[in-house]
Structures are given as C-alpha cells and as structure tokens.
Amino acid sequence: MIRALLLSTFLAAPALADEIWVTNEMDDSVSVIDVATLTVKATYPTGERPRGLTFSRDFSRLYICASDSDAVQVMDPATGAILHDLPSGEDPEQFVLAPDDRLLYIANEDDAITTVVDTQTRKLVAQIDVGVEPEGMGISPDGRVQVTTSETTNMAHWIDTATHQVIANSLVDARPRHAEFSPDGAELWVSSEIGGTVAVFDAATKAEIGKISFAIKGVQPEKLQPVGMRFSPDATKVFVALGPANHIAVVDAASRTVERYILVGRRVWHMAISPDETTLFTTNGVSGDVTAIDLATLEPLATIKVGRFPWGAAARPTSD
C-alpha cells in the first residue's frame, strides 16, 4: 500500500528534477531525493541491509548491495522494481562499477574476497583473495586497476583488472573504509576510520606521497573517523566524511591540507554530488537524515529526513 502510494507520488512529480538516491541500512529501502525541492519523492523496498549503491553509466539500472540478503540487486530506477539479483558472494557491502559499464567489483566482507561479476551475462567472472573484511572499492578511471581495502588487515590491495591478480599491497592506518582515485587517475586516496587518517598514493609507483590528519576544536581525536570521500567536480577539493565527528572535511587536493570543516548530521558516512554540480549530499546514519551543502558557499542548505540509518548515496540526472 505504502509503496503504491509513494510510487504514484513519484509519477505525479515533475520528471525533470535530478535525484539523489540513498540506501537506508536499517529500513531495507532506498530513498529518492528531489534535488530541486530537497524533499524525498519516493521510497522503494530493497533486500536486507542495503549499503553500497551505484548506477549504470546510462542511469537505467541501479545496483544495490543488499548485504544481509547476500545479493546485489538490480533495480529499475524508473519504477523502483527489483529486476533481478546478481551473484554477489556473501555479505556484499560495497562495490565499484568498471568504466566499461559491465564488470562489477564487489567486496565480500565476511569472506575476505573481492568478487567480479559481469552485469550483462550475470555470471561470476573471478574471486580474488584479499585481506580480512574487504570494504573500500575504487577503480582507476582507465579501468586498469581496482583497489580493495581490507578493514581488519589494514591494507589497500591493488588488483590488475586484466589478470584479476593482486599486484601490490599497501599498508594503511587502521580500518580502511574507502578508496577513491583522483579523476585524472594519478592518485589514490584511502581513508582509515580508526587510524583517523587519509593516505594518498601515487597510482603509478604505488608509493605513499601524503597523509592527512584532522583536528576540530572541541572534538576528541578518537572521534575523527574518516570514511566516505568524494572529489569535487573540478577535482580541486576532496570532501571527507568524518563519521561520529559529524563533520565533512574539505581538503585541498593539491596541498592536501584541510581548508574547513562543515557540520552535518550524526555519524556521516558517504556523499553524492548533484548532477548539476551545485550541491553535495551527505548520509547521516545515526540522525537518519541527509544534509544538502551548497558547493559554492560550502554552507549547509537543508536537512532531509530519510529512512533509518542512511548509508550509501548516488546521483541520477533525469533531465534530458
């Protein structure tokens, strides 16, 4: 009933607004935020404990890690209908879609494995042994290197996507949660939640070239726990979500210094940037909402209530 009602609301809404899609970890649903009105315009049920989510290149398919259902679900974002599942391995927490729009690299947290799935044939392509509790998933813009971080082994594992072999391992600080290549592919950024740092690697030599620490007046160092990261559209800044410190750090990508901190909701996880590149959206797990931040002023615009424990975020342009 509720779903039908929400669906009709969605269909009645103007079709031109861009959207931010958010997984609600404890509600088994995704919320769809209208970027123009900053309101939730639809909520769709998913499998259990949805976390990572990403769109196909043409935005016609949404992939969702339903971790406790042990499935990657494929949703039609036009209708919210689950079309089918992909063979994901156990407990898929986070994934990254290759630039070829075809291969999905999935972190199987309980199995210390990175699973590679072909989204077209829906077949498993490879399973790669990595460290304990893989989570952060990054892929180079040219698609040649995939990086899986393992939370308990504290490493970034560099995987050659041609051979699906681990070609290097880089030690990082405790509990790495997220890996992000710079848009030009020159650098890899890895956040360490318990270590409280972000390590920056030269993607070519795989050498560590910088490490970023955080400090907010009145916040204990132990609470500064970097998780999600996003490069700004012009690649000059990196936004780092600081978890229970309830702030986003704005890092200058060139000097790797923190320029400012933006207060958001409680336990901030991940982020998405609106397709028109004007607004940053953060998922705030404990407060169950999303903060919208104006990218020009770096000031919060609105707080949007979503489901319980929002976790992942992805943007979808809808204007033609």
């Binding site: 308990t152 504290n154 405790a174 509990r175 939640e193 318990i194 409280g196 132990e222 609470k223 229970p244």
Partner: peptide, 10 residues
C-alpha cells in the same frame, strides 16, 4: 597505537 576493536573508538 590506534587499534581497531569494533567498539567505535581506537
């Protein structure tokens, strides 16, 4: 020493 212990703080 900042050791991960699944209790939310190092």
């Amino acid at each position: 020493a900042r050791i991960g212990g699944f209790l939310g703080r190092p």
